[in-house]
Structures are given as C-alpha cells and as structure tokens.
Design a protein around this nucleic acid. Structure first.
Lengths: 214, 214
DNA sequence: CGGGTGTTTGACGTCTGTCAAAAAGCGTGG
DNA sequence: CCACGCTTTTTGACAGACGTCAAACACCCG
C-alpha cells in the first residue's frame, strides 16, 4: 500500500498522470495504479482522457465553499469515467481504495465514436435518475435503492462490496453519516440485509428491499 | 390557446409528432407548436429526434409510483433537448406554455457529430451540478441559485420570465410548493428581488443573491 | 360576475440533521 | 500476539428546517 501510494504520488507530481498517458498513446494503455485516497484529477485540470476502472473504485465529487460535499458518482471495475463538457474538469476524481485505471480514449481526438456518445448519454441518464432519488426519496428509499444498485452492478446479491465509507455514501445520497448508519441498522434488524462486515453487505430479502424503493 | 391545444392533440394522436418529424426530413424542420400542458413525448416512446426550443418552455420530468414528481430540467428558447441513452425515452417532456419546437438532428443516424457529443456532455454536467444543488443546498440557496440561473439563461436581470408554476419550481428543486412560496416572499421582503407579476421576477441585488448561494 | 386553478399564509408535525460520546475496526509497533 | 492510537461507525438526545394540512387569497378566462 505504501509502495502504491508512493508510485501514484510520483506520477501525479510529474505533471498529471492523465495527461502524459493520453498524449503518449493512441490505444488502450497499461494499467496505472492509484493508492487509496489519492487524486486522479481535480477541478481545473485538463480533461484529455477517459478512464476505465480495471480494479478498485473511484468517487467523483464536488465541494461547496463551506466544505459541504456532494459525491456525484461511484465507478466500479469495468466502468468508464472522465467526461467533461469543457476542456477542463469541474469535479474531483479520487481512488477510494487501491485502484487500477486504463486510459481508453482521448475525447479531444477528431473522430467521435458512437460508443463515446453512448457512454456520455448513459452518464447523463444516470445523473438525471439520481436527481430523482435525491430530490424526492426518503432516506430509507435512497439506501435501499443504493444497495440494490450496487448489487446489480456487481452481479451478486450475497457478496456486495461497499468500498466507500459511510461518509461517501451519505454524501452520495444527500444524507448524513448518522442517518446512513441508522438506516443500515434498521434494514439489518428488519432482516432485509446482513452486514457480513462493515464494507460487505448481503441481501436477504430482495423483494422487500425493492418494495422500499418508491 | 384552444386552437393550439387542438392542433397539438391532432399531431400526437396521429402517431407521435416526434417520430413523423424525425423520419420525414433529414434537415432542420418547420416549427411545430405544442399547446400549454401538452405532452411532447412520454416514457417508452421512441427517442428518434432532438428538439430545439424556438419559443416557449419545456419541462422534463419523471414520476415515482406514488405520484411524487421530480422535474429534471427546464428548456427555454434556444436550448436543445431530447437525448436518451436508449432507443426509447425514460422521461416526460411537456410544453409548459405554448411552445414552438424544431427537430434538429436524428440521433440514430450513422454519423455522430462532435456538436452532438458536446450537447450530451453539457447536459450531463448540468445534471451533475443539479445533484449538488438538490443534495446539499438549503431551500434559500436553491431558490437564489435558480433565479440567478434563469436570469443568466435569459440574459436579463430586470425581466426574468418564470413560465413554470411554483409547483414546477418546487419539483425541480426538490422542495414543496409552500416552501418555494415562502422563500420567494422572504427574498422579496428582504429587498433582493421584486415580483413584477406572479411569473416575472426582477433582481434588485444580484450580489446579495449570489451571496446566498453557497 | 362566478368557477377553477394557482398562490400565499398560518399552525403544527416529523424526518433528518446536529451535537456528543461510546464502540468497533484496523494498521502499527512493541 | 497483544496493546496502542487512530479513524470510522454506531447510538442517543435534542433541535431545526422543511413538509403537511388547511384555509384564505389572487388571478385568469369564459
């Protein structure tokens, strides 16, 4: 872990790992590893590459001036992120745990592939659906939906990894860490989920959980 | 108004105005008018055209099973909407007032223009920023930001049209109609805005209003 | 001049946030 | 292997912002 963080730091300080990757190659690239908690890009940084998660997990977030934070999205293994409407990023992207990334395309390149548009559209729809969740659902609905979402993205009901902290989940769902903790406890004592460990959930009653999502 | 609604109804019932437009022409099309409150498309309908607003205003929204509604976005004159990640729509698009639309591109066509990608990305960023607003801002912050956003989109601080109802605003900002009304009253009595009429706002103190947005 | 929709205002309730402290994990080092 | 210290999580008591319910008030158009 120390070694990873160190390598990561070296890449970042030598002038943006992202940029050097994006400009050096035209094709899929070697996996670059980021240590837990390290920054992949920050607001203002040139947006000249997309990333595919090989392993680990990434959070995209934004801060208000007084420190309030909103996590915009999580990206798990196999998912792609890094879109920006302008030539520079407007969010933070950070590795949640030790994470391997591969730069897959270069948005500034002349050709626009239909795949790229499709990815962008999927991202937009996902964001718009998240607006509904945050704008109109209760804490229980949000968390039940979140667990189901994580399960479906990992294709497993019995071993759902939650690489992010409760604070990350809270900031993603527009709640506080205490509310997240309380709702998890409630779902557990109702027998709908089991907390195998602090970062691993099992769904015991999918139907009931789905029933909690409006 | 009756005439408009009637014409709209005829178009819709004769098998989707959107579809017939999208398939009949390859280039910019004549303006089609939709009456206040009429549907432009609904979830499940084929997504085979984008629309540019010529005049009027459109709301994009989604419903939960129990009737809770979230307005995802408003589109004013000059703005473009109609993106979908799948071949069918997942939201409702409705004319708020009498509205003229022009179908501008056909997303299913082979060529993907950079402009199209740019529009999609801009939509994604806008949605992601709205997540921050709804997830982490107070009622006053949301409404102050909303008024400023409407002003900048209309390029006028002294005559800001709010074509949508208070309920639309509430459902857009994740609030209730009563809270929206109360905050407007508060901003008015604080001298930051003037309500020229129920659907027209004037900003008296932009700095103070900006100061209210985190 | 009505009837209907949309808006405002008031009184009250509650869900979620805030503050605080204890408990549980987890990596480090003896 | 266990003790230590840190971060993360859980739990409790309390408070506040916003929602709910209800009624009065404007506005629009016929």
């Amino acid at each position: 872990m120390v070694a990873l963080a160190y390598a990561d730091h070296a890449l970042l300080t030598s002038g943006s790992a992202a940029r050097s990757l994006g400009l050096s190659y035209a094709r899929p690239l070697p996996v670059v590893t980021f240590g837990a908690g390290s920054e992949i890009y920050v607001p203002g940084q040139a947006a000249d590459a997309l990333y595919q998660v090989e392993f680990g997990a990434v959070r995209l977030h934004r801060l208000l001036s007084d420190g309030r934070r909103q996590v915009i999205a999580f990206y798990l293994a196999g998912e792609t992120f890094g879109f920006a409407a302008e030539p520079i990023h407007s969010f933070f992207a950070e590795a949640i745990v030790a994470t391997g990334l591969k730069a897959v395309v270069h948005p500034a390149s002349g050709a626009v592939s239909p795949d790229l548009l499709s990815l962008a559209l999927r991202g937009m729809i996902r964001a718009q659906e998240h607006i509904l969740v945050i704008g109109r659902q209760t804490a229980v609905e949000r968390i039940a939906g979140f667990i189901i979402d994580m399960a479906s993205r990992q294709g497993d009901l019995e071993h759902i990894d939650l690489p992010m902290t409760r604070l990350d989940i809270a900031d993603y769902l527009g709640l506080t860490i205490e509310t997240v903790s309380r709702v998890f406890a409630k779902l557990r004592s109702a027998g709908l989920i089991k907390l195998r460990s602090i970062r691993c959930v099992e769904i015991n009653n999918l139907r009931a959980l789905q029933g909690l999502c409006a």
